[in-house]
Design a protein around this nucleic acid. Structure first.
Lengths: 129, 129
DNA sequence: GTAAACTCTATACCTAGTATAGAGTCAACA
DNA sequence: TGTTGACTCTATACTAGGTATAGAGTTTAC
């Protein structure tokens, strides 16, 4: 199949597919005589794998490592587990940070109301500190 | 004071200060004969205001709007309140997304353990789907 | 006088794409 | 056979919010 079909089936845009190729994440198996990229079913499943990883927030470098790891089915999968655990830690930390931020924003919102003037604005006063 | 002192007092790096200037967020009041930027106490408080806003996750454009608003002390501060409320909505949404992501990662981590081989890896199997 | 510390501009780089421009390719239809 | 439209190609620029140089000039202290 050509890139347009792959794009539709995978849900990645054409530019994204070409971008992944430039990042050495994912390569077309062949080209036509007119220089069009050609993909097969396994290209599609790799691209779906990549998409799934991206939706988890894994970076391109991490996905590259996972794809490398998949090339050696008999090795230990410890690095995969470590990656997921580390990522969970990061996400947990980020959630905590955002919860603190939300609290600050809530306090800030309570400090003012509409119908005030800029010079009396409780939000701006909090931002001065 | 010169940029190094401002940087230390504000906690923003020198490059960041110059970057904000290039973004028309913040300008040195003067230059020395040798073309060094000169700042005063009000520069410092503005920069602290900017830093505070950034720590809340406001964008540079939003901060620019806030700084503009502050120039007109007698106008209504409704836009400031709206900005904070919108930002709270965004943060809340992001927290929800990250909580879902965390759940997915947790399920994934449970699907495998160390001491398995890549071809048996529960994480990789989940990523294939 | 000179060495160290500081500052200047300009440019490139980062992530993960997105959005063009301008050219080439291919299939269908008249 | 010509041509129209859909598709694809490469290359480049842009996004946000900085960070990190290179190479030059300035200031300060000894």
């Amino acid at each position: 199949m050509k890139i347009g079909e792959l794009s539709k089936k995978s849900g990645c845009s054409i530019q994204t597919v070409r971008f992944y190729e430039k990042q050495h994440l994912f390569k077309a198996c062949n080209r036509t005589e007119g220089n069009y990229r050609i993909y097969d079913a396994s290209s599609l499943s790799t691209l779906r794998f990549i998409k799934q990883c991206r939706s988890l927030g894994l970076t391109i470098i991490e996905i590259k490592q996972l794809l490398d790891t998949k090339m050696n089915p008999d090795r230990s999968c410890t690095s995969v587990n470590n990656l997921i655990h580390q990522h969970m830690t990061d996400v947990t930390k980020r959630i905590e940070e955002l919860n603190e931020l939300k609290q600050t924003l809530t306090d800030m919102a309570l400090a003012c109301s509409d119908n005030r003037k800029v010079k009396e604005c409780g939000v701006l006063q909090m931002l001065e500190k």
